[in-house]
Amino acid sequence: MVETREQKERGSIKIFIQVRDLHKDFKLGKEDINILKGINLDIEQGEMVALLGPSGSGKSTFLNVLGGLVPPTSGDIMIRDYHISEMLENELCLFRREHLGFIFQSYNLISTMTAMENVALALTFAGVKKEIRKKRAIEALEVVGLVDRMGHKPSELSGGQQQRVSIARALVNHPEIILADEPTGNLDSKTSADIMEMIYRLNREENQTFVIVTHDPDTTKYCTKVIHMQDGLIESEVNQ
């Protein structure tokens, strides 16, 4: 792991995610609340970044802005050559489909669909043919070790299994970046460790870039970069 980091630092690996002076205000009644107050950040390809901070520090909002789910008030986000902050909603949809995967604390699976269908859904919108969708969904479920439960609905799966389905869904498009909002927040420590091990493995094997919002210091040990946020600003940025 240390070797890869050194490779990146010395090599020609360019900056993958570039955030410049990012602001986000929310209107609460008549008042403007500044959630993000000017964030600057560079992330390289293949990094695994942990975003830590107390509630209200803006870490989740930052992740959502990064994923194009919320437009920033001002500032610029570039992922590869794309100006996320300037994209229209439909362009963002296409961008998410091709480049981003999401993992949520509450899994966000569709309750009426089986594990396999949930994973394949992301491919449906990309216009992938049905047989190929199924094949790739099964491959993704293999990666998370859930092929034997692919016919089960989310309600028939444990929390850890549900989170693994949602990871498989995030993986199925082979995105370059996976954004995870408290992926282990609802899980016990044993399952949390399993999930983090899996994310770590994916990060190394597939060279996917992860940005993980967490409040659990245990998860940070898997990460290459740990960012502490406080009051809408980056307080500290530690490479490890």
Binding site: N90, C93, R96, R97, N108, L121, A126, N173
Partner: peptide
């Protein structure tokens, strides 16, 4: 609503 949100997050376009 939640389902629609999920679909949009994982890449469904407005027209989808």
């Amino acid at each position: 609503t939640k389902e629609i949100g999920i679909m949009k997050v994982i890449g469904a376009s407005i027209s989808d």
